[in-house]
Design a protein around this nucleic acid. Sequence first.
DNA 1: CGCTGTTTTGAAGGATTTCAATCGATGTGG
DNA 2: CCACATCGATTGAAATCCTTCAAAACAGCG
Lengths: 245, 245
Amino acid sequence: MFSQATLQIPPKPELFALMKTSTLFKSLDDSAIKAIYEAGVLEKFRKDSFIFHQDEPAKTISILVHGVVHLSQLTVKGQQVIMHYLAPGDEMGILALFPDQVYPVTAVSAADCLLLSWPDKILAALIKQFPQLALNALQMMTNRFVVLQNQYRQLATERAEQRIARTLLQIAQKSGKNDSQGSWLSPPPSRQQVAEMTGTTLYTVSRICSKWEKEGIIVTSRKWLQIKKYDTLQVIIEDGSPLSQ
Amino acid sequence: MFSQATLQIPPKPELFALMKTSTLFKSLDDSAIKAIYEAGVLEKFRKDSFIFHQDEPAKTISILVHGVVHLSQLTVKGQQVIMHYLAPGDEMGILALFPDQVYPVTAVSAADCLLLSWPDKILAALIKQFPQLALNALQMMTNRFVVLQNQYRQLATERAEQRIARTLLQIAQKSGKNDSQGSWLSPPPSRQQVAEMTGTTLYTVSRICSKWEKEGIIVTSRKWLQIKKYDTLQVIIEDGSPLSQ
DNA sequence: CGCTGTTTTGAAGGATTTCAATCGATGTGG
DNA sequence: CCACATCGATTGAAATCCTTCAAAACAGCG
């Protein structure tokens, strides 16, 4: 619900700090950050709502302030493929920067979310004022491209267990909370979601998680997922089993 | 060999026409095309030679004039994944436009090739002179990104047979020669190469091609591959139905 | 407490890989 | 011009990974 503490709008200094950590707004001075912030709007989305749809005209660029967003595509048969997982500080809708584009993916909130958003025309105007923005946008685009190429290679060559291990570690790095017990993900991604992020089925994810739980690598509940043996997962990722010789 | 007719340098009008068909140089007038052409260099590469290596500083942007180039990544175990197939008019080394990038892939000539290339600094200067170039470069980047996202979804959700069918049709569209008998690819990609383009093994590709040959969908030889039933392959792609039929 | 949606698990089947052997085309040197 | 070496393609058989289907267990929630 929107009354939760987690969806309170953070104070401005915190927002500014977040903006500066993003690729889109890095290397901008305080006054620029402030001006850009003033031109944007804060938007709230409940868990499991659509932020934008694939094939819709791309009109809004946003950075995620709080929550989790999945970028996904749907196959003709209705199967979902999650291509990108966003944590606070990450951007979405980059393509709206370029004229006459449609979103190539659908953005769905996987938790209650707070976004800082700019209509395409306003961001275009801001780019004229702060040329660094254009360079940053380009940088962002190339970063995503390179990341996606790696994801593609991994999907083509790695077994399900490796891909699942990699995905859990990536989520942990992005949104996990670390303590002496290991890394905590809460709320945890569902088996179904992990399956959609790794190109496999929820049954395979469930089996592999069960196995890892028996081996003491992870502990799971409905509310959280704890990674106890970070290194063991790392080994699973690096140890190319049969397929990759 | 470089004495082959296929590697003769085409006359300028032909080169200019090719440049205009590329995303990078579209919407530029004749004088701009000419100036840009004069600033570039023609390079020849024998079949199976490296044009650039993954992780090497990106210093050159090229468009392919003649031949075929594969962009690929290598896994830690040495397995190859072909991420992109270039036909004449396609560009490579886009990332060299951005400062301090390294090539994220390796470019290998899959046939004797002729390239028209620009050092990064020279193209940067040309961009100042012809701002349309920057927009085109951006367009190119986003196009590639969207294409790669689709490839990723397909790899995650489709069976080997569908992916192989799709790949053959794509190659046919890009470099096939059509006549009343169907579409001809010559030289044809090897089973190994198709496997690397589809995230499967050469054995699976061989089995599926044998099956298609029995069904009269394709005819193969060492020197060429003929697609006789274009529509049937299209149905295989769209249907997602298992082997058989 | 019963409902609902997620997770687990077994069993069967299917798709793909792996290994090994063979075939076939092509090019080479005797 | 033929014997031979080479390299890619084919094919069978076994193994493996993963999916599919079905059923049961489970957790959370009103």
